[in-house]
Amino acid sequence: MKLAIVEIEFIDPERILRNEEHSAAHAEELANAMKYSDLWRVPILLEKESLAVMDGHHRLAAARSLGLIRVPVLRLDYQHVEVVATREGFTVTPDEIVMRARQGNLYPEKTTRHMFSSPIPNCNISLVLCRGRVPGMPEIR
C-alpha cells in the first residue's frame, strides 16, 4: 500500500490513543518548530479502527501542547504494516498494541517499530487549519 495515495483526514487529537511513552523534551522541541514554521509537516499514522498511534507519538504530544483541535492523520490497518519490538521482554503484536492503547497501559518510549511499505509522505499543512474553525473546512471527527 502506497502511503502517498491514502487520504489525509483531520481528527481531534484527544480521540487519538497513545500506546507508548514519549520524550517530553523532544515533543517540546517539535512543538516549537511547528510554531516557528506555522506548519504541520508529517501526518500521524493511526490504526484505522482504534485510532492507536502507529507513528507520531511526539507529534501528538506537540499538538496537544499547542492546543490544536485537529491534526492530519493517515488511517492504516495492520494488514499493510509490520511491527516489531525494539526492547527485549515486551510482546509487540497489533492486538497487544491496540489493547494497551485502549487500556492506557503504555509501552516505554521506542518499544515498538512500525515498518511501512513506502515512506511517510509530507503534508505541509498550515497550523491555521489545525487551530480552529475554517470556513469550508470539513468538521473534525
Rank of each mutant, 00 (worst) to 15 (best):
A27D: 07
L30W: 05
H22G: 13
V73Q: 01
F10P: 00
L60W: 10
E47R: 08
L30V: 03
P43H: 08
F10I: 00
L17T: 13
S65Q: 07
E9Q: 14
L74A: 04
L3C: 05
H58V: 08
L46I: 06
L39K: 09
L51A: 13
V71L: 01
K2N: 15
Y36P: 01
R64M: 06
R59F: 07
L3R: 06
L39F: 13
P72Y: 12
V53A: 06
I16D: 00
N32V: 07
G56T: 09
S37V: 08
M54S: 13
E47C: 06
V53Q: 07
H26F: 12
H58I: 02
V81T: 03
L74G: 06
A24I: 13
D38T: 08
D77Q: 05
H80Y: 14
E9K: 15
E49Q: 08
E7H: 04
P43G: 10
E21D: 08
I11G: 01
L30Q: 07
R59L: 02
D12I: 02
Y78R: 05
H57I: 01
P13Y: 12
D12E: 09
R15C: 08
H80C: 14
R18C: 12
E21G: 06
D12G: 09
F10Y: 13
L46W: 07
A4G: 15
K35E: 11
L60T: 03
M34P: 01
W40N: 04
K35H: 12
S23C: 09
A33R: 14
I16Q: 00
H57M: 03
I11H: 03
N19F: 04
I11V: 15
L45Q: 09
L3I: 02
H58W: 10
F10R: 03
E14P: 00
K2Y: 15
R59P: 00
K2H: 15
N32C: 07
G56H: 12
R70N: 09
L51Q: 13
L68F: 08
V73L: 01
I11A: 01
A25P: 05
V53S: 07
V42Q: 10
V6C: 15
P43A: 11
D38F: 14
V73T: 05
H26Y: 14
A62C: 08
D38P: 03
I11N: 00
G67C: 06
R18A: 10
P72N: 12
V42W: 11
I44G: 02
N19I: 00
R75H: 05
E20L: 02
H22D: 10
M34L: 09
L30S: 06
L76Y: 01
E49W: 07
L66A: 01
E21S: 10
